[in-house]
């Protein structure tokens, strides 16, 4: 506790960086996953390669990715861009299937009605299909958020500072307080992400709660 109170500033700084490194890729990953998921749903031949291919990305060991990315991107090893790119890749890996399945779960008669009303494909996607897929996509996003918060901490090994640095610090000094603090802070951050996603989802889907009022 003493350690925590005396290092409050450091912990806060690391938490903010951690939130940035885990959170921004959630948005970027979602932006990439939306068109890929749509493609997988739109063209049945594209579904297996896209779903399996992006799914395999998640099996890439994070440490290896952090180490190899600077060579691929021509960035410095300590550049946080490496971490952002890696986390975006993991987010895409988790979300493409979610987006495809979310778009696929839209009732056939709703899709039919949208066509019959004279929707063109893009407007139908934005106006009808995506809004209806929000609950499914949101569920996938919550998993990705927790996963990102956890994986980012590995980047401490290559020297990119964030909450994971508390683990390497504690490990090097055989000193527990930073490790415990790091675990708790990661938990709090994951919970925070989850709450934000749930609240946004609720705001975007008033219709899912209307049932009870009937």
């Amino acid at each position: 506790m003493d350690w925590f109170t005396s290092h409050l500033d450091d912990v806060w700084r690391l938490l903010v960086v951690h939130a940035y490194l885990a959170g921004l890729p959630l948005l970027l990953g979602l932006l990439v996953a939306l068109p890929l998921g749509w493609l997988a749903r739109r063209f049945s031949w594209a579904y297996p390669p896209l779903i399996i291919g992006t799914g395999l990305l998640y099996t890439l060991p994070s440490l290896a990715v952090f180490i190899l990315l600077p060579g691929i991107l021509h960035t410095r090893i300590l550049d946080p861009v490496n971490v952002l790119v890696a986390m975006t890749v993991y987010t895409v890996a988790l979300l493409v299937r979610t987006v495809a399945d979310g778009l696929g779960a839209i009732p056939e008669d709703v899709r039919l009605a949208a066509n019959a009303m004279g929707y063109r494909p893009v407007r139908r996607l934005l106006g009808v299909e995506l809004p209806l897929a929000v609950p499914v996509i949101s569920a996938g996003l919550r998993v990705a958020a927790v996963s990102n918060v956890s994986i980012v901490s590995v980047a401490a090994i290559i020297g990119v500072e964030q909450l994971g640095s508390l683990f390497t610090d504690g490990f090097n000094r055989a000193f527990f307080p930073p490790i415990v603090t790091g675990i708790l802070a990661c938990g709090v951050l994951a919970l925070l992400f989850d709450v934000v996603i749930v609240v946004l989802t609720r705001l975007m889907t008033p219709w899912t709660r209307a049932r009870a009022a009937s």
Partner: peptide
């Protein structure tokens, strides 16, 4: 858009 269409289960937009 110039033809009204009513489908079997109404097919309303739930959202």
């Amino acid at each position: 858009r110039g033809i009204g269409y009513v489908i079997q289960h109404a097919g309303l937009f739930p959202h």
